[in-house]
Simulated scan of single mutants.
Amino acid sequence: MLSFILSSNSAAKNWQTVLDNGQNHSVYFHAWGGDPQINAYIQWLEQQVKQQYNIDLHHIKLTDTSEAVSRVLAEKSAGNHSEGKVDLIWINGANFAAMAKHGLLTPNWATKLPNFSLTNPAKNPAMSLDFGVPTQGMESPWGQAALTFYYDSVAITSPPKTLTQLLTWSTQHKGRFTYPKPPDFIGVSFLKYALISLTPASLQAKLYQPVTKQNSALLLPKLWQFLDTLHPNLWRAGQHFVSSSTALRRLMGDTELSLAMTFSAPEVPAAVTRFDLPTSIRSYAMSDGSLSNIHFVAIPYNAAHTDSAKLVANFMLSVNAQAKKQRPTTWGDNTVLDLSILAADQVTQFQLSNPHPSSLAPNHNSPALAEPHPSWVKVIEQQWLERYGAQ
């Protein structure tokens, strides 16, 4: 008991040091800036941390997270080990694996945030795993997302619920579906969903290990065989692919497509509300599984304001910030907090009434498909571009 008290006192003292050192500074938060709802939520974060800590949070909008990775790597190569221009970065998957490999992230800080305990990590080990890779305290969880499909209920009465059904449906509705070209995140996510679905259960463990030439030669041919059959049925006969999920949504809005997908389920009702999508749009999850992951924030090893970034990350994990983020009218990103350990009045902040007709049903019962090991992404992208990139 005494050791527990001493440990608690030490943690409180250490956090007080973070509070003392972290206030009254700027934090440059490098995060994807392609969604107006997410950008608006980050603006709200800016107001909150300014009010609580007098921190000036600056959202550096990225087209791709790799831009921030390259910047930190360039700073390290130039010998800038303490005055980096990236204080906090929104990250997961291959970008996290790359930064961790090159020693570009601050270690052992995330689990020491006071609000990290609200994720109940002992019962939710995924909070410390990024695409199956242990985070080792280098990342703080921020939200959860899953690949969600949406369709025009005027054009489709019964959407395809499995990958096999999607192939059959595409032959009957030629030109009414497509996916973004890799390396777009949504496009790669669709390919990973397809790969998992096409891989026999007895071999799926290989997808969660670092990719090898032997395993890629064993598992990827099924994916290419599937795509060879699917592509002629796609929009523009698979001879041209859109570059982003935004462009995909635009085609749905113009009714050129009847079926599309997103990794941000709340994006769909928000787009309907903005009249970017028809009111007939409905969301659903595939019955053979939904590719799911947790996204995180990390602090580069050379951040100029490490303690300030920790204060921001801790606020991101607060009940208030997580509940607001989960509301469909805000962002709709699922919380990483374990509601079972929260007080009753805190849980009520996450409860919704009168969901939008285009929203994804919360009880869709789609199995969560874990992300493959991040090393598979580069191989999938390279081989896809070799096979289909010139089209």
Results as ranks from 00 to 15, higher is better:
residue 335 T to G: 12
residue 30 H to F: 14
residue 82 S to Y: 00
residue 382 Q to V: 10
residue 220 L to Q: 10
residue 84 G to V: 13
residue 164 T to F: 05
residue 284 Y to L: 04
residue 86 V to D: 09
residue 250 R to M: 10
residue 202 S to K: 13
residue 112 K to D: 09
residue 62 L to C: 03
residue 135 T to G: 04
residue 54 N to P: 06
residue 237 A to V: 02
residue 277 L to V: 05
residue 290 S to I: 01
residue 22 G to N: 06
residue 155 A to P: 04
residue 263 F to H: 06
residue 2 L to R: 14
residue 171 T to P: 00
residue 106 T to K: 14
residue 175 G to M: 09
residue 45 L to H: 04
residue 107 P to K: 12
residue 93 G to V: 06
residue 217 A to S: 14
residue 187 G to F: 07
residue 344 A to W: 03
residue 253 G to N: 07
residue 286 M to H: 05
residue 270 A to D: 10
residue 43 Q to P: 00
residue 296 F to W: 11
residue 202 S to G: 02
residue 365 N to G: 02
residue 171 T to L: 00
residue 152 D to L: 12
residue 325 K to G: 01
residue 308 S to R: 08
residue 388 Y to L: 13
residue 162 T to R: 01
residue 378 K to S: 13
residue 215 N to G: 00
residue 36 P to G: 00
residue 317 L to P: 06
residue 354 N to H: 14
residue 27 V to A: 01
residue 217 A to H: 09
residue 107 P to Q: 02
residue 378 K to Y: 01
residue 67 E to Q: 15
residue 327 R to I: 06
residue 129 L to W: 08
residue 6 L to H: 11
residue 18 V to P: 02
residue 184 D to T: 06
residue 354 N to L: 11
residue 1 M to F: 13
residue 93 G to E: 10
residue 177 F to H: 09
residue 158 S to I: 03
residue 354 N to K: 14
residue 330 T to A: 12
residue 352 L to Y: 11
residue 295 H to I: 05
residue 19 L to V: 02
residue 332 G to T: 12
residue 356 H to M: 05
residue 274 R to G: 02
residue 164 T to P: 02
residue 294 I to K: 04
residue 229 T to F: 00
residue 108 N to L: 04
residue 204 Q to I: 06
residue 182 P to E: 08
residue 236 R to Y: 07
residue 154 V to H: 10
residue 221 P to W: 06
residue 240 H to Y: 13
residue 169 W to V: 05
residue 187 G to H: 12
residue 112 K to N: 13
residue 214 Q to N: 10
residue 55 I to K: 05
residue 224 W to Y: 14
residue 170 S to N: 03
residue 102 H to E: 13
residue 77 S to D: 03
residue 45 L to F: 10
residue 62 L to D: 05
residue 387 R to T: 15
residue 391 Q to W: 15
residue 191 L to K: 05
residue 158 S to N: 13
residue 313 A to E: 00
residue 18 V to T: 14
residue 238 G to T: 07
residue 70 S to G: 03
residue 200 P to R: 01
residue 285 A to V: 01
residue 47 Q to I: 01
residue 28 Y to F: 12
residue 328 P to A: 06
residue 45 L to V: 07
residue 153 S to T: 13
residue 119 T to I: 05
residue 292 S to K: 08
residue 104 L to C: 12
residue 331 W to D: 11
residue 254 D to W: 01
residue 316 M to C: 14
residue 384 W to F: 15
residue 91 I to C: 09
residue 181 K to S: 11
residue 195 L to D: 08
residue 130 D to F: 01
residue 116 F to K: 02
residue 296 F to S: 05
residue 235 W to I: 01
residue 132 G to E: 04
residue 72 V to T: 11
residue 174 K to H: 06
residue 321 A to D: 04
residue 165 Q to R: 07
residue 155 A to T: 06
residue 1 M to I: 13
residue 286 M to F: 14
residue 290 S to L: 06
residue 299 I to M: 04
residue 274 R to Q: 13
residue 325 K to N: 13
residue 319 V to G: 09
residue 234 L to C: 15
residue 339 L to G: 10
residue 255 T to S: 14
residue 138 M to E: 15
residue 355 P to G: 10
residue 222 K to R: 15
residue 377 V to C: 03
residue 174 K to Y: 03
residue 210 P to M: 04
residue 209 Q to S: 09
residue 336 V to P: 01
residue 311 L to Q: 08
residue 283 S to A: 11
residue 62 L to N: 05
residue 227 L to D: 07
residue 188 V to W: 08
residue 310 K to V: 05
residue 94 A to V: 13
residue 107 P to G: 08
residue 32 W to L: 14
residue 287 S to T: 15
